[in-house]
Design a binder for these strands. Structure first.
Lengths: 325, 325
DNA sequence: CTGTTAGCGCGTTCAT
DNA sequence: ATGAACGCGCTAACAG
């Protein structure tokens, strides 16, 4: 592997000059610049990222921590994060935390090791003692004690929209089915919005809201419908929960959307260009990724940033509600 | 940020000793080891990955290149790759190539920059001039001119199994619908296996096999069924193609699986634990990832490796074939 | 057993 | 405009 010294020798200049043409720093006479460039080409010179990183204390790499990439929501998010980072000349290190505190901490340590410049994280474990304000960290949907940049979508509105839609489509009694983490998350506002709007509209409703991890979730769902046989419109906390509900109702021989309508939340698609799998309140995943990337880079660059970014959500019609004509 | 020198100073030893306790290399007296460890703890010392990498010429990071992470097959694969790498103390850099030659090359360059030690790639562009035998590279499903380690599954058998299953389920005339890249790929053997088995069993069949990118794919599928109205069993080159077929048949008011049965290939699931979306020939994604990781690490370590690994496939019943009782 | 020292490849003064 | 020299933090070789 050719090094800077080799290039300098071949071009009969000092290493300093090579460095200058490489980084366009300082002035270099056109003729010598050409000599150097020729030498670089001839030796097939590629600068060593480690030496540079050691010197500059910068890696141009950020880590993305998510529970698992094997999930359409996270994989869409990761897709856009990588894409945006790439446009800013950054690389992305991916970590499936599997919701394990240990692995999340390991990655947080990596920023201290100088392996990454910052972290974007969707996390569900106890990180309060490690996330400090001088750690370049952007969270999605989550708050910490220390003020940290948080990108989220309008979860409260999501709940309200779902109620509005279900009522408009003729539902008489609503249900909310979801789970929540024991750590503070923006997504709990989905339920709040649901209750708020149902209250305003004076619609009766029932709720099942378990704490993760819920064992035998499907049985809980079944029990919910047995206890509330008149519920004909459900807002599910996520699209996957909507899918679970769909399976349970199928077992119970209750038709969707004829007898029960369901609206999920997230707006997952299996790949770009495919349809939603259920009627849903869609989060603007692309925008969330874009914001997260811009914010983490600003934090790394030491620029001031807003610590909370809330993005709009939107109802998208799918196969689990009655079409409105 | 505390450095090794600081630790050495605080512990009143030389930096060599600190390095030794850090890496468990060479012998260190128990009492001094403790002194050093205490100092490390007190200063909250974290070794700098760059300095170490510069010295060792090793990053413990590999790059995974895939067309897009926003796809259940690739995201499952990436999930397992990261998991296996993690067990070997490696990190994973993720690259969505979007099937762009440029971006793939950029990552290949990174191994020369010493940003990564090796690459696992699912690629579809012209890389022959860059993939040389001394580049630590493991491909999935693909061959290059230069001998490179290739992990794949038994695609030929996949085609044969599909035919067997369709016939067993009562199909009289078969169809194969797929696409292929213009670069040599193991997956073209799915069609070969299909034709081989249909030939042996003397079953009539029709084929549509377009070259990527196929424009208006659904219209092609529709044309296929209009030209071959008696096809009652289809082997789709991928699960997503099976899904497209499903949509087309739905538009044509033809019932699946009653009138037409479909078997896909890949075995994608939206997340761990969920069901297949169609009847399918499933690839052992977890094993493929495990093999790919083991092989790339062996290559990096300079160990000899088999250059081709073929893993078994398996039929999995789903909603697009008639249940066999 | 342990301290000292020489680079790893690069960016950056500081003279020239 | 450009070359020489220093140091980033670490490992390994050597001397004691």
């Amino acid at each position: 592997m050719a090094t800077m010294k080799d290039v300098a020798a071949l071009a009969r200049v000092g290493v300093g000059t090579v460095s200058r043409v490489l980084n366009d720093s300082g002035a270099v006479k056109e003729s010598t610049r050409r000599k150097v460039e020729a030498a670089m080409k001839e030796l097939n010179y590629i600068p060593n990222a480690y030496a540079r990183g050691l010197k500059m204390n910068k890696t141009n790499t950020i880590a993305l921590i998510i529970p698992t990439i094997w999930h359409p929501f996270f994989s869409e998010f990761a897709y856009y994060v990588e894409r945006n980072l790439s446009e800013h000349k950054y690389k992305m290190l991916l970590c499936n935390s599997d919701v394990s505190n240990e692995k999340e901490l390991e990655y947080i340590q990596m920023v201290q090791e100088n392996k990454v410049d910052g972290i974007i994280g969707i996390t569900y474990s106890d990180l309060d003692n490690f996330v400090s304000s001088h750690l370049p960290f952007v969270t999605i949907d989550r708050h910490f004690k220390e003020e940290t940049v948080c990108v989220t979508s309008d979860n409260f509105l999501a709940g309200r929209l779902a109620v509005e839609q279900l009522i408009e489509k003729g539902c008489k009694k609503l249900g909310y089915i979801g789970t929540h983490s024991r750590f503070p998350s923006e997504t709990t506002k989905r339920r709040d919005g649901f209750e708020d709007q149902a209250g305003r509209m004076e619609i009766p409703y029932a709720i099942f809201d378990g704490e993760d991890p819920v064992v035998a979730f499907k049985q809980e769902i079944r029990a919910f419908f047995e206890a509330n046989p008149d519920v004909d419109g459900v807002f599910a906390h996520t699209d996957f929960i909507a899918l679970d509900i769909l399976e349970v109702l199928d077992e119970m021989k209750r038709k969707v959307p004829e007898e029960v309508q369901i609206i999920g939340c997230d707006g997952i698609k299996m790949e770009a260009g495919r349809r939603q799998i259920v009627s849903t309140i869609r989060q603007p995943v692309d925008l969330m990724a874009k914001e997260a990337v811009e914010k983490i880079i600003q934090v790394i660059d030491g620029e001031p940033v807003k610590t909370k970014i809330v993005l709009p959500v939107q109802y998208v019609e799918g196969p689990t509600t009655k079409n409105s004509f």
